[in-house]
């Protein structure tokens, strides 16, 4: 039993490395347009996994993780344009700033239950947008800040690839560790978890901070890519929606859900945005509604439940 398990693990690691390797080599074969496409997909994957990290695993559904995307975005813009910082350092600092904000915000907001937390986070993101509009000396308000254009798209590609691999591995670690098990108990039964000695506040805030950190990285990199920022770009409500939709469709609280969702919806949105912008959002609304109403655990969730159900049935049959 142990040997074949070991073989399986080795196989998985090899496959993983091969995929990463091909993604690393890919840019050499692609045109600028294609690289942009991948950059967008990678960003979607990062955002979907970030949202999933808090909302999928702890059950604290956030309607405003975009606030950290915005914080990271503005941090990056201000550091590079006002302080002339090198982009790499600025991204790292943006991540740190998002994380630092996440801790007090998390400590406060995660005391709220269900809809209060969700709507509270939404309110927070609108609050940040309002501040971004009004604090003109810092953010230039609605006019925005222009940054020097980027010449090498590959750099951004690799940065996003790195972020994507990182959050993917973190999610994998969550699924395969005791630490992660405890995070999952929060969604199952927070009070019950406390009763057996689990410090739920710590685990909640931890997951929230990781989520915020990666949203911040995505925000910073996005601004680097666009070379421009304004409150709409930074607190991008359609990205907010995308994050949620991707995890939902793929499967909240699963390892592969956000990836499946990001790939599917990412493709769909690239395909649709060519057409009328408002219709594309209507379709998204429909997708969310349909998935929640008929397939609430998402594609991956449904498949897992089904295979687990069959496994359990086999188990029971064998025993009897």
């Amino acid at each position: 039993m142990k040997d074949s398990e070991k073989n399986n693990s080795i196989k998985k690691v090899i496959v993983f490395f091969l995929i990463v390797l091909s993604l690393v080599i890919l840019p050499y074969f692609l045109s600028s347009y294609r690289i942009s496409f991948f950059i967008t997909i990678f960003m979607y994957v990062v955002l979907a996994y970030s949202w999933n990290f808090i909302s999928g695993y702890t059950g604290y559904v956030s309607f405003g993780q975009i606030v950290f995307f915005g914080l990271g975005a503005y941090a990056f813009a201000i550091l590079t344009s006002n302080f002339g910082m090198n982009w790499g350092l600025a991204v790292v600092l943006a991540a740190i700033i998002s994380s630092l904000f996440a801790v007090p915000i998390g400590l406060v907001m995660l005391r709220l239950k269900g809809p209060y937390f969700a709507v509270g986070m939404m309110g927070l993101s609108q609050f940040l947008a309002a501040i971004a509009f009004n604090w003109k000396s810092l953010t230039n308000g609605a006019v925005g800040i222009y940054l020097p254009p980027v010449f090498s798209l590959s750099t951004i590609y690799y940065a996003f690839l790195g972020a994507m691999i990182a959050i993917f591995l973190l999610t994998w670690k969550l699924e395969n560790s005791n630490f992660g098990l405890r995070i999952k108990t929060i969604k199952e039964d927070e009070e019950g978890a406390e009763a057996i000695g689990i410090n739920t506040t710590f685990y909640k805030v931890f997951a929230f901070t990781i989520s915020a950190c990666f949203c911040g990285i995505a925000g910073a990199l996005q601004i680097y890519y666009l070379s421009y920022i304004d409150p709409y770009v930074a607190i991008n409500m359609s990205l907010n929606l995308m994050m949620i939709a991707m995890s939902l469709v793929g499967g909240m609280g699963t390892m592969w859900g956000p990836l499946v969702g990001a790939l599917m919806l990412g493709q769909l949105s690239e395909f649709l945005w060519v057409s009328f912008p408002y219709i594309y959002m209507i379709i998204f609304g429909c997708i969310i509604v349909v998935i929640i109403a008929f397939l609430p655990s998402g594609i991956v969730g449904y498949v897992t439940q089904y295979t687990q159900y069959r496994k359990d049935r086999m188990n029971n049959l064998i025993k009897n």
Partner: peptide, 20 residues
């Protein structure tokens, strides 16, 4: 179902109607 689910559903509904 847990509130999170209905929240998400109505969020989808709101997106639908708003863009409509």
């Amino acid at each position: 179902q847990p509130m999170a689910i209905s929240l998400l559903l109505l969020y989808g509904v709101s997106i639908f109607f708003k863009n409509l």
